[in-house]
């Protein structure tokens, strides 16, 4: 928890405002009623739209405000080899990051009156898959960029743009193929972080 506590717990008022702003935005623009519990097809379409919209917004937010990257890899992943960061720290941070990412659209859906079971199944689980994929890929991408001496600002722009493209498309995929996509998300999380850990911790 030490990375997460430090980088999410301190001086991130702007980040919290953005997250709450997205939550309100999604709530206002989501056309769902508790009756939708009965209509699975409508749920699919709406959830897909919500996750795509959310993916785009979150891509921008994380690109602009993620307090953790790209500084963790400055310069070129070398720093953390000298100060005792562990593989657990990295895996934990990425997983918690995905959890924060997934919780926002889930809260929106629950506030709309959709049952918790359906919210977990159709929003939370797909969003976790998107979150794991997204957060791992942007970390791995940032590390690759810093390894070849690309500046921090460019790294930020790269994963912001990459995030928007990825999150939107992945969201659609996970809605259509939830199990395969979740497994793929988990695989990307494992492989991506194996690369990051090898570079930063070994």
């Amino acid at each position: 928890m030490r990375l997460f506590k430090t980088f999410y717990g301190k001086n991130n008022f702007f980040l919290y405002v953005l997250y709450i702003g997205i939550l309100i935005f999604l709530y206002l623009f989501t056309n769902l009623s508790p009756d939708s519990n009965k209509l699975l097809n409508e749920m699919h379409i709406t959830m897909s739209k919500i996750l795509m919209l959310y993916g785009i917004l979150a891509g921008v937010i994380i690109g602009v405000s993620d307090p953790y990257l790209p500084t963790i890899f400055t310069p070129r992943g070398e720093w953390y080899r000298t100060v005792g960061i562990t593989a657990t720290d990295i895996l934990e941070y990425e997983a918690l990051h995905a959890l924060v990412y997934a919780s926002i659209p889930t809260i929106v859906i629950v506030l709309k009156g959709i049952s918790i079971e359906k919210s977990l199944m159709y929003v939370f689980m797909p969003a976790i898959a998107v979150g794991l994929t997204f957060t791992t890929l942007k970390s791995a991408l940032s590390l690759l960029c810093t390894k070849v001496n690309i500046s921090a600002s460019l790294v930020r722009v790269t994963y912001m743009v990459g995030g928007i493209a990825l999150a939107g498309n992945i969201a659609q995929l996970v809605i259509t193929y939830p199990i395969a996509s979740s497994l793929t998300g988990l695989l990307i999380y494992i492989l991506g972080n194996a690369f990051i850990i090898r570079e930063v911790v070994s």
């Binding site: 030490r2 430090t6 301190k10 001086n11 991130n12 307090p67 500084t71 400055t74 310069p75 720093w79 100060v83 005792g84 960061i85 720290d89």
Partner: peptide
């Protein structure tokens, strides 16, 4: 090259690294 996080205060930076070093 300092490796100090600009979004944290000096104190938070130091205490964070202290935490990493247990």
């Amino acid at each position: 090259e300092s490796g100090i996080y600009q979004r944290l205060t000096g104190e938070e930076n130091i205490l964070y690294f202290a935490d990493l070093a247990d």
